[in-house]
């Protein structure tokens, strides 16, 4: 291969090509969202538009009508919180420990964490069903117990977010420097490593929240009620409200991603000021 060919193959796309690609991808994401918004203003099949579907949400009647939906939102938020807790309490220390003390286990841990992405949710449920029969006996049938399953489904995303941050900082040198200055293991983790892993930890947490808020299959097949199963149920009687809540969930996920980007990009000096 000639040098010219190599340069041509490795060259960046032109500004026009970049804008075109961005425009097409943006349209793919935006068109359904715009269609959803447009749908929420439709007045049945009459062809005109109304704000009644939005304003109706705040009426006393709707509070009663959609009590189940609000309960489902609460369930999903609790599930998100517990799932993030599982990621922070179990996955994060394990990854730090493997990174520092047992680097040979890194590949094994990565393999284990990636597995859930290769297993279809339906297959996962088949495996989880007998486990949950025991979970129900021990912890009851509360919806929050679904977080154990979600803790597994978010592993690939949370692992990748934390690992890329771990690879980007000199974990070993920083923790050794802290030890020589008198810090114990917990101090090293809390005061030195966590602040430097903030970006990865936040990304893992927000991605976990987004995954949990959008999860349907496992909750449905294990007969638990979360936001997505409730939306399906509501959509059968009031499709406009279901779409409004779906939009709200999308907006929340979008805001979370924005926060990840903003916090991750902020340099220490800017944070300080």
């Amino acid at each position: 291969m000639s040098a010219n060919q190599a340069v041509r193959i490795g060259a960046e796309p032109s500004a026009l090509a970049r804008r075109l690609i961005l425009g097409i991808i943006g349209a793919i994401f935006l068109i359904p969202v715009i269609a959803m918004i447009e749908f929420t203003f439709r007045n049945g099949l009459a062809g005109d538009y109304t704000t009644s579907h939005w304003t109706g949400l705040f009426s006393e009647d709707s509070a009663r009508t959609y009590r189940g939906l609000y309960q489902a939102i609460e369930n999903s938020l609790v599930l998100a919180a517990v799932t993030v807790g599982i990621v922070l309490v179990l996955l994060l220390p394990t990854m730090v420990l493997v990174h520092m003390q047992f680097p040979r286990l890194k590949r094994t841990l990565e393999f284990i964490c990636i597995i859930p992405i290769t297993v279809p949710a339906i297959v996962l449920v088949v495996g989880l069903a007998p486990v949950y029969s025991v979970v129900v006996q021990v912890l009851g049938g509360s919806t929050w117990t679904l977080a154990f399953a979600y803790g597994i489904t978010v592993l690939p995303y949370a692992y990748r977010a934390i690992q890329s941050n771990l690879d980007a900082i000199p974990v070993k040198t920083l923790s050794e420097a802290a030890s020589t200055l008198g810090a114990g293991w917990m101090t090293v983790l809390w005061k030195i490593l966590l602040p430097n892993l903030r970006r990865g930890v936040l990304a893992a947490s927000f991605i976990s929240i987004a995954v949990v808020l959008g999860e349907f299959t496992i909750a449905s097949l294990l007969n638990r009620r979360n936001l997505q199963t409730a939306l399906l149920q509501v959509s059968q009687s009031d499709p406009w409200v279901a779409v409004i809540f779906a939009l709200a969930a999308l907006a929340l996920a979008f805001v979370l991603l924005l926060i990840i980007g903003r916090l991750g990009a902020a340099s220490p000096s800017r944070r300080k000021s």
Binding site: L174, I192, N196
Partner: peptide, 30 residues
């Protein structure tokens, strides 16, 4: 005796300042 109890000071080959702390906070850490 663990490292943090040996009362030593160490300077490493790699830059090892804590990136999230100011110079003063780094020096105050010990």
């Amino acid at each position: 005796t663990p490292t943090n109890k040996r009362d030593i000071g160490m300077v490493f080959q790699a830059y090892s300042l804590f990136p999230h702390m100011t110079v003063l906070e780094n020096v105050e850490f010990g």
